[in-house]
């Protein structure tokens, strides 16, 4: 998967390209709009990450140029989170946006979503280590023992299983489980995860849900 990062701020460009590289993507960096235009004309990319404040050719103009020739997914980054800016980006054909400052986890989650070409198939069955989930029958077992979960806990566990091995940020979890697209000051997500852990992890020695301090939570089999 090839990703083009168009970003003039050097530090940002560096860590984005490093981070994406470590996540298994091959990354090209363009430092200004004209560079980016050149690269896009020469090469094929699976995703363009575009900062809208660019010297030379600005992000909006570049976006229009890109849309003239291809339907490559575009994720735009902006420091201004005025509603008009976001609407403008989406109208010009961007697929998603992130407002600076954003967490890298959040960024990676968006990138993955955009690169997943077809909409994810609803899975009916999950198995991680000794944990099994039957989505249709709403059954969760560990070591064959049935674990009773509330609806919210079930939805949360399903989200973790679906994104097995991916670190999920608190914001992302809140937006998926409660459809809350705002950051509340409270530790609602921590509490929810703790309650889920109390049921699915605490009684067992082999833990599956892990806290990535400062980033979020991940469900994976770490043996």
């Amino acid at each position: 998967m090839r990703i083009l990062v168009v970003e003039d701020e050097q530090k940002t460009a560096n860590y984005l390209s490093k981070g994406l590289g470590e996540s298994g993507y091959s990354v090209e960096v363009a430092r200004d709009g004209l560079d980016a235009q050149h690269l896009i004309n020469e090469d094929e990319f699976d995703l363009v990450v575009l900062d809208v404040m660019l010297p030379g050719l600005d992000g909006w103009q570049l976006l229009q140029l890109i849309r003239r020739r291809s339907q490559v997914p575009v994720l735009f980054l902006t420091a201004r989170d005025a509603v008009e800016d976001r609407v403008k980006g989406l109208e010009l054909g961007a697929d998603d946006y992130l407002v600076k400052p954003f967490s890298f986890i959040e960024f990676l989650a968006r990138v993955r979503t955009l690169l997943r070409r077809s909409p994810p198939r609803e899975r009916e069955h999950f198995r991680v280590a000794d944990m099994e989930m039957d989505v249709l029958r709403r059954r969760v077992t560990r070591q064959g023992e049935r674990i009773a979960l509330t609806n919210k806990e079930f939805a949360l566990l399903e989200l973790f299983l679906d994104r097995e091995g991916e670190v999920l940020s608190r914001t992302y979890i809140a937006s998926r489980i409660w459809k809350m697209n705002f950051d509340s000051d409270t530790n609602v997500v921590e509490v929810a995860v703790r309650r889920l852990r109390a049921k699915v992890d605490d009684p067992f020695t082999h833990k599956l849900i892990h806290t990535e301090r400062g980033m979020g939570y991940v469900l994976e089999d770490r043996t």
Binding site: K152, K179, M180, V188, V191
Partner: peptide, 13 residues
Amino acid sequence: MQLCDYFEGMAED
């Protein structure tokens, strides 16, 4: 109701 649903876990805790 949506907000209560959101904060429910915290409150019950």
